[in-house]
């Protein structure tokens, strides 16, 4: 095995990823667990970059780290999670969990032994100016233009539906009206009263 800089980086990121993933499961504090999950995604993104899939790597950071995990953190911080109740019955679930894990390992091993691993040649390296963001964009906006637009319409429907189903204007609720606050001028709020001091 040759150790060039790429493989050293790959092993480093993989180690961090596996360690962080383990910590997600065993961390006591759910906020820590969420932060470890962020680290896991980060390491995975780095591995994508090493593989030359820079678009996937960046999207992983933008979408998962930037949006999904922040949402997770909000939820975890807002919920009052009783840790003791969550840990209850850990031992009784352990055998089932271990059995499932063992099954997963067994399946992976079977794939490894039966798949024609050595027979598939490694893909040809891409030319130096290859840019998979550009390649993806090209396919998405030419060949798949029509489904892409429909997907956009579906997302719009999802937004409309989510807002229409959850937004409810209650009369009498005391919320700020930003536009009125911004339009306020000094003379609406401050009255100068001419108070003459009477001389006795």
């Amino acid at each position: 095995m040759t150790l060039n800089i790429t493989s050293i980086l790959f092993y480093a990121f993989s180690l961090v990823l596996l360690g962080a993933a383990t910590m997600v499961v065993i961390a006591r504090n759910p906020v820590y667990a969420t932060l470890y999950l962020v680290l896991t995604f980060f390491s995975a993104a780095a591995i994508f970059l090493l593989l030359g899939a820079e678009f996937l790597g960046l999207i992983l950071i933008l979408v998962y780290v930037g949006a999904v995990m922040v949402l997770f953190l909000f939820v975890v911080m807002m919920l009052d999670i009783n840790l003791a109740r969550l840990k209850e019955g850990f031992l009784s679930y352990l055998p089932l969990g271990l059995a499932i894990a063992a099954l997963g390992v067994l399946e992976l091993a079977m794939v490894y032994w039966t798949a024609p691993m050595g027979q598939v040649p490694a893909p040809a390296p891409f030319p130096g100016n290859y840019d998979n963001t550009r390649a993806l964009g090209y396919v998405l906006y030419t060949q798949y233009l029509y489904p892409f637009e429909i997907a956009a319409a579906i997302l719009l429907v999802a937004i409309i539906a989510a807002i229409a189903l959850t937004l409810r204007r209650r009369s009498g609720s005391k919320n700020q009206r930003t536009e009125e606050q911004l339009l306020v001028r000094a003379k609406d709020r401050v009255h100068l009263v001419d108070l003459r001091i009477k001389k006795h």
């Binding site: 429909i150 319409a153 579906i154 429907v157 999802a158 409309i160 539906a161 189903l165």
Partner: peptide, 10 residues
Amino acid sequence: LELLALSQYA
């Protein structure tokens, strides 16, 4: 189909 279905659910 999904566009139709999502609108219908809502």
